[in-house]
């Protein structure tokens, strides 16, 4: 039983695909909301995000989603999954939009891929990093269960996460640089890719999240 899942809606883009992927992965009940009581009562919390970081941070703060997220994380055993810009928002600071302070939940920087970006064979790499790339599992985690190392997930982003505490890195990807594709700390799992758009592997990761007890 997954119990209820609250997808935090701070007004940035469509969250239906996240919600329907969670339902498809077996969630008992999915709520797309920024209602404080509903999020507090939920058994699990998903913190998504699309678009530009400055607008996201402004809405997160305006709707007090930062406090709700902090409460969920402090709960200690309520599983929290952050996705894409949701993951970036957890970091200390982002280079996007001329530099934006973020939530500082996880110490580290969100950096631009750089222009030009060059691959290991000297080839030019396109930005945004868009498409299916291999995620190296840097350590075991309940959310990787049943997913082979180097499985491809769907990415679309121009900025990447670089956490200071390297022991938090649960998955990494090579794209001109090696960046943090997944971070894990206590009851939090954060991913740069879109599990809701990553077909079988993504649905499996969401199912693992729904079955996770928040410990690792």
């Amino acid at each position: 039983m997954s119990g209820s899942v609250a997808v935090i809606d701070y007004g940035m883009g469509n969250l239906h695909s996240v919600a329907s992927a969670l339902a498809h992965a077996g969630a008992d009940r999915v709520l797309v909301t920024h209602d404080a009581d509903l999020i507090r009562e939920a058994d699990r919390v998903v913190f998504p995000g699309v678009g530009a970081i400055r607008d996201c941070m402004a809405e997160i703060r305006r709707l007090r989603c930062d406090q709700l997220l902090a409460d969920a994380l402090a709960d200690g055993h309520k599983p929290v999954l952050a996705i894409c810009v949701g993951m970036q928002a957890l970091m200390s600071h982002s280079e996007e939009n001329g530099g934006v302070p973020c939530l500082d939940t996880i110490p580290g920087e969100v950096r631009y891929f750089g222009n030009p970006l060059v691959g290991s064979q000297g080839e030019r790499l396109k930005v945004p990093h868009m498409g299916w790339n291999e995620v190296r599992q840097e350590r075991d985690h309940p959310l990787w269960q049943g997913i082979a190392d180097l499985t491809r997930f769907y990415f679309v982003h121009s900025y990447y996460v670089d956490a200071i505490e390297r022991e938090l890195v649960a998955g990494s990807v090579q794209y001109g640089v090696t960046f943090d594709a997944a971070l894990a700390r206590d009851n939090l799992f954060a991913v740069q890719f879109h599990p809701e758009k990553s077909h079988t592997a993504g649905l499996r990761l969401l199912r693992n999240f729904l079955e996770w007890n928040g410990q690792c």
Binding site: G119, G131, E134, Y175
Partner: peptide, 8 residues
């Protein structure tokens, strides 16, 4: 290995 070319 890296980013896959996409078929759409």
């Amino acid at each position: 290995m890296g980013l896959a070319k996409r078929i759409i």
